[in-house]
């Protein structure tokens, strides 16, 4: 394995004509942990990853691996491995030939082809034309391509897509194993639940902008109190003046940082009758959806 480097994204932006796909994005991905790169469909994940790899030219900012842009790396495929969302295969070429074509161009030892095919469980299908592969097999071949140069940095775009439950389990532990070996692992997904068991850090974007960068545990919103009253406006101002952190919802108010008993006492002090007082555990998925807005954009 080559040395693991950080991935440094600094002020990265990209517009496709009128479409502002990514806006002033900055974050750092560290070695030794799995970092989830999350956002709803169209948030700009794929565009960002393609900018990292020099496939898409940024409108502004930079993305580097230990200080070097992808095209400046002496041995790119042996430094950074990537599996990108789109199925980039010639359907008439076998998996073995697919890998050896690019291995040759990147100067990677021939024996790696069979090694990685075995690693992703495609050893028995290596000489079949890729056109006949299932979606899950293509994902595995994509992963084999990422591993080809035994790189210290791995960038995976939605690798879980199309995998069966067993495959999902397998990739989760595989990602952990890769990070455990000290590699830098960045894996994108539009579903937090899909990766939450395998990631430690998360970078969340929405509409091309960074909305969260930090640990997974800190993202958990904890418990909030849902409260309502026939006099909702009165309740809201009463809670606020009592120092509570209040969020107005469609069907009531949500209070964070206070217990149900506290909220009840605040209402009583103000003499406002309650029609509802329920604690709610928000969980990660809810926190994620709150961050990216109502499902983001389609």
């Amino acid at each position: 394995m080559s040395t693991s480097t950080t991935i440094d994204v600094r002020g990265l932006s990209k517009s496709f004509g009128q479409v502002q796909a990514v806006t002033d994005l900055s974050f750092t991905v560290r070695p030794g942990v799995v970092t989830g790169f999350l956002g709803p469909n169209g948030a700009g994940k794929t565009t960002t990853l393609r900018m990292l790899l020099g496939l898409v030219r940024p409108s502004g900012g930079s993305a580097t691996f230990g200080g070097r842009a992808y095209r400046e790396l002496a041995r790119p495929l042996a430094t950074v491995g990537m599996a990108l969302e789109a199925s980039s295969f010639h359907p008439g070429r076998s998996a073995r030939h697919h890998l050896s074509v690019y291995g040759t161009a990147a100067g990677i030892a021939k024996n790696r082809v069979d090694e990685v095919l075995g690693q992703v469980g495609l050893g028995d299908f290596a000489d079949r034309r890729v056109g006949g592969y299932s979606l899950g097999m293509r994902q595995r071949l994509g992963l084999a391509f990422a591993l080809l140069g035994d790189p210290g940095v791995l960038v995976l775009d939605e690798p879980v897509n199309g995998l069966d439950p067993e495959g999902i389990k397998w990739i989760r532990s595989f990602l952990r194993q890769l990070a455990g070996e000290g590699r830098t692992v960045l894996v994108s997904s539009h579903l937090l639940s899909e990766v939450q068991q395998s990631v430690d850090q998360v970078v969340i974007i929405s509409r091309g902008e960074l909305v969260y960068d930090g640990g997974l545990a800190a993202l958990d919103g904890g418990t909030r109190i849902l409260v309502d009253s026939p006099d909702r406006a009165g309740l809201e101002s009463a809670l606020r003046s009592a120092g509570a952190d209040v969020l107005a919802l469609e069907d009531g108010l949500a209070v964070t940082g206070s217990s149900a008993a506290d909220v009840g006492a605040m209402a009583l002090t103000a003499g406002i009758p309650l029609s509802r007082l329920t604690p709610e555990h928000t969980g990660l998925e809810k926190a994620f959806l709150d961050l990216v807005g109502e499902g983001g954009r389609p």
Partner: peptide
């Protein structure tokens, strides 16, 4: 054109960014 059609420019340019 088959490189464009089958999107194989992606692995091609990853293996050789120049």
């Amino acid at each position: 054109t088959s490189e464009f059609r089958h999107q194989t420019l992606t692995p091609t340019f990853l293996a050789q960014p120049h």
